[in-house]
Amino acid sequence: MTTSEPNVADGIVVVDKPAGLTSHTVVARIRRLAGTRKVGHAGTLDPMATGILVVGLNRATRLLGHLQLADKSYDATVLLGATTTTDDAEGEIQTTASPAALGEVTAEAIEKAVAGFRGRISQVPSKVSAIKVDGRRAYERVRAGEEVALKAREVTVSRYDVLDVRSAAQAIEVDISVDCSSGTYIRALARDLGVELGVGGHLTMLRRTRVGSFDLSAAYTLEELGEDFRWLPIADVAGETFPRYDADAEQATAIRTGRPLAGLKLGAGPTAMFGPDGTFLALYEAHGPLAKPTAVFVG
């Protein structure tokens, strides 16, 4: 982890996003703190959500698309007993369940329902998702009063644990922890759990605790970054994420211009190519007898 004054080089910042801010707002703040215009993020978080937002600086914005960021982890709270227009606490309540119906929802019934959402499942995204429908975001159409119908998609929920169940007269709160593939909507899991139990449900808290190999131990709040801007150099991220190849001077010259290389025994998938001075140069992959560039980060 590198600390520096503004005008940092290429790297990754792992932000612990607060509630109430959009991902776009977080990027804007990182842009000011880092003293660079070239900032991007991977994996949007809704304003109500907190937790991991992976942000790229300068040339590392291009690295984001090559990092293994598909697997994510979340802690969340589902409120059973009411549905909302947005499948979360920010929407208007649509329906409520009777105390009698809630009284029939036991911890055992919740566990049984949750089991049906583990593994490879078909999920209809929330209507207020960022999915584009005829060129416009679904949430934009919903907020404009339009009716939106989204198609189901397959996602993977590799872990779905019930951590706690708290019952009251008008609602049941369920704390959950989930590992899932990119494209999984936790709001939809909350909605569908309520449907399965017959009482309705929506999300009241969401915290992303992991994106790929980045977890909360590597994350910093905006306040902490404002006091001491901490970032991961692109060379460190590439070296820890991909197999490493240390090129000699002649090979490094070829890599800098994206030329194919012969005689290298690279494994499957991208390999991080480094120059003799330790500079991260590119990602290369094996293509038959040649190693060819996937992305070049110098020059």
Rank of each mutant, 00 (worst) to 15 (best):
R37P: 12
V39K: 00
V39Q: 03
G40Y: 03
A42Y: 01
A42E: 00
G43M: 04
G43V: 03
G43A: 10
D46F: 01
A49H: 00
A49K: 02
G51L: 03
G51Y: 02
V54P: 03
V54M: 05
G56P: 02
G56M: 02
N58G: 08
N58A: 15
L63T: 06
L64Y: 04
G65W: 05
G65Y: 03
H66Q: 14
L67V: 00
Q68Y: 09
L69T: 13
A70N: 15
K72E: 07
K72P: 13
S73C: 15
D75G: 11
D75E: 15
D75R: 14
A76H: 14
A76I: 15
V78C: 13
L79E: 14
L79C: 14
A82G: 07
T85V: 05
E90R: 00
E92R: 12
E92K: 09
I93M: 08
Q94P: 01
T95F: 10
S98D: 09
P99R: 03
A101T: 06
L102Q: 02
L102R: 02
G103V: 05
V105N: 11
V105T: 06
E108Q: 13
E108Y: 10
E108G: 09
A109H: 12
I110S: 11
V114A: 14
A115H: 09
A115K: 12
G119R: 04
R120K: 14
R120Q: 15
R120S: 14
I121L: 06
I121P: 06
I121W: 05
S122A: 13
Q123K: 00
V124Q: 02
V124P: 03
S126Q: 03
K127L: 12
I131P: 12
I131K: 11
I131H: 06
K132Y: 11
K132F: 08
V133W: 08
V133A: 10
D134P: 09
D134W: 10
G135E: 07
R136P: 11
R136W: 09
R137D: 07
A138D: 06
A138R: 10
Y139L: 07
V142Q: 11
E147M: 08
V148C: 07
V148K: 07
L150K: 04
K151A: 15
V155Q: 04
V155N: 04
V155T: 04
